[in-house]
Design a protein around this nucleic acid. Structure first.
Lengths: 305, 305
DNA sequence: CAGACATGTTGCGATTTCTGCAATACAATA
DNA sequence: TATTGTATTGCAGAAATCGCAACATGTCTG
């Protein structure tokens, strides 16, 4: 019997849901299942009555739950009492896209700096597309970025907030948007597109769904460049609303009400699962989660304390 | 933090001696050292002040010791309270030399049968030399035998009792022993020797030390055979005193007082270390230890409970 | 009613962790 | 100075653990 297993058990005994517990504790469902099976084998009793639809604590489970709570609590107290210097040291490396830098970085960083003042933050900002690569290469430990549409394996995501992906047009040059009756004529209206990345993919799919070959005026890198070009009347563009709101050119831009809307960007934090064993990174993770509106808000927590 | 580590720590906190604890808990010193290092890393405090000469509990160690005792005790209670059927089942295979069968088997078996009535004992008896082979082949789990002089790797020994290795001569045929003045003339006196095994090795060394080429009358297998031949006046022999005392031919035999004495046989229990994770075998081991006069009597204990 | 979805489990390969052995470092002792 | 006793460490093999993928089964939805 070890602490980690006990903590998993305790969480499951509360949630009564393998999926939720496994997500909250950053383990795969299979690992959780096996951990519970191990404990059951060790005590020689079934701890949960479970089928595919429901999970209930058995009598033995109740007893173990009490033990688990006491033991974990005592352990925490012990560590607190004798750890001369619990404060985390060292550094942690982040990669943050410009988009995300506007939206969520300040809040997270502020809270982290307050809670872990001894941890140096090594922050790089840059193109969103590079984030995942750098993460996998081990160049950075955590990235803050728009989350990709499909989950990649071995990675852990935490959505923090969303921001709509909006079409923008210049205020000063209304003729940029070419109408075809009440509708916009997308075959003629020039479009400034991102060179690559998630917003480009979304836009491509959007046009593909409409079966329209867009009139691409320019392909540029970086949302700021898009805003700049749009403000100059080069065409309409697509940027995350968040970026627009922070832009000094904001007042020269209007947001078009287009339907169907583009799926919003989900901004959040991402790391490789393994990194969460590092207490500094786990702390960063939990601090990031603290203001998450509705995603596993209170689920992620103190597995490895 | 897990139970096994905690138990190791607790034992060390009592014994304050890595060697003793590692022996008592059936782990190598290196494993123990590393376990302690792991715990120390986890709590971030040194638990023992230690150099090559002494081991002392630190303040943090004191605190952890209390935690360990409470936690282990609570865990034990929990298991007792909810385990529907703690009694051990199944079977356990023993190999026992004839010599050992006389001396220590009855006591051990009796106690084991009393404590673990549900465990079937599969007992084979036979020549002492075969024991180690069968143990290493996995044919049997535990052997009860005379312990070899030097420890083999991966094996765990527990001496239970000793019995002298004595020279015997026939009472009815005093002329069998040929004297040379007050001393026995070993060059002429016929000797019945064991074909192989520990007593043969001892005797060979004994003669070698005396630089005598003995007059070997016969080489036989089995102490009973030696006693029989000696009692018939074929020569003098060497057997463990224990075997002689149980022999029906005892009254036709006399024990010679020879110097230097042969080193006594150490009878005991032996198994491969790995087997001690099997709770049945561990139970057998501890029950065997219960009457050990002076060898780690109270040291071996409840590591894996 | 069929297909998509959700949920817990299991087979299997890969990684991480742990152990034991052998060698090392160091002090006390003879 | 050699020897013994003690804890530690490098290294290689063994064992535990994990994650992925596939599966079994139950529920929802169009």
């Amino acid at each position: 019997m070890d602490m980690d297993s006990l903590k998993l058990f305790r969480h499951l005994a509360e949630s009564l849901h393998f999926g939720r517990t496994s997500r909250a504790c950053h383990v795969t469902p299979s690992a959780l299942t096996r951990t519970i099976q191990r404990i059951e084998a060790e005590v020689g009793e079934r701890l949960f009555d479970r089928d595919n639809r429901s999970v209930r604590l058995t009598k033995a489970g109740e007893a173990l739950k009490q033990y688990a709570e006491e033991t974990i609590e005592r352990w925490k107290e012990l560590k607190n009492s004798l750890a001369g210097d619990t404060t985390l040291h060292g550094d942690i490396s982040l990669y943050c896209s410009v988009t995300a830098a506007y939206g969520i970085l300040p809040g997270i960083l502020g809270r982290f700096r307050k809670d872990c003042p001894e941890v140096q933050i090594k922050l790089q900002t840059g193109d969103a597309a590079q984030g995942l690569t750098r993460l996998k290469n081990g160049e950075v430990e955590v990235i803050i970025d728009a989350l990709p549409d499909k989950e990649a394996s071995g990675l852990e995501f935490m959505p923090i907030t969303e921001t709509p992906l909006v079409f923008i047009a210049p205020l000063a040059f209304p003729e940029t948007v070419i109408h075809d009756g009440p509708e916009i004529d997308w075959r003629k209206t020039p479009v400034i597109m991102a060179e690559q990345g998630l917003s480009r993919e979304r836009l491509d799919r959007w046009f593909a769904a409409k079966k329209i070959q867009p009139n691409i005026y320019a392909q540029v890198a970086g949302n700021e460049a898009i805003i700049a070009m749009v403000s100059l009347g080069c065409g309409v563009g697509v940027v995350p609303l968040l970026v627009l709101e922070k832009s000094p050119l904001q007042e020269q831009i209007t947001v078009l009400d287009i339907s169907p809307r583009l799926a919003p960007f989900s901004l959040g934090v991402c790391t490789v699962k393994k990194n969460l064993r590092n207490p500094k990174i786990l702390a960063f993770w939990e601090i990031s989660a603290r203001k998450t509106p509705n995603h596993e808000k209170n689920a992620a927590g103190n597995l490895r304390g």
